[in-house]
């Protein structure tokens, strides 16, 4: 496993790969499905383009809505895929920095 901080986020987004994602997801009791991968891939592309993770849950939902529409861009859907704090859980699995405004 690549180096991680005390909250389980990778120190560097470049050290991520799908195997790493599966290991981190399992720590959260998540088995990654196609629906998970769709969001994970989206977040990685988003980070590459904008050099930030969506800073909060609300902005995570907005960004997903902008990309995939209302059916997936809503907090219930994302909460089911990534329990807890969805933006934080999803970014951790995607190997991205911790969203700045998520406690």
């Amino acid at each position: 496993m690549p180096e991680r901080n005390n909250e389980g986020f990778l120190e560097s987004a470049e050290h991520w790969n799908p195997k790493v994602a599966e290991v981190i997801a399992r720590e959260d009791g998540i088995n990654l499905s196609d629906n998970h991968w769709e969001i994970i891939r989206f977040l990685r592309v988003f980070y590459k383009q904008h050099e930030i993770s969506p800073p909060s849950n609300r902005l995570f939902v907005k960004a997903v809505k902008e990309a995939f529409g209302e059916a997936k861009g809503n907090s219930i859907y994302l909460m089911q895929l990534f329990p807890g704090t969805p933006a934080k859980t999803a970014c951790r699995i995607a190997g991205l920095p911790r969203p700045t405004n998520c406690l």
Binding site: F46, E51, I52, K62
Partner: peptide, 15 residues
């Protein structure tokens, strides 16, 4: 640092 240009390009997506 992170590119301000790239950070700013997320602004329209966030509303």
């Amino acid at each position: 640092q992170k590119s301000i240009e790239r950070n700013l390009s997320a602004a329209p997506i966030f509303g």
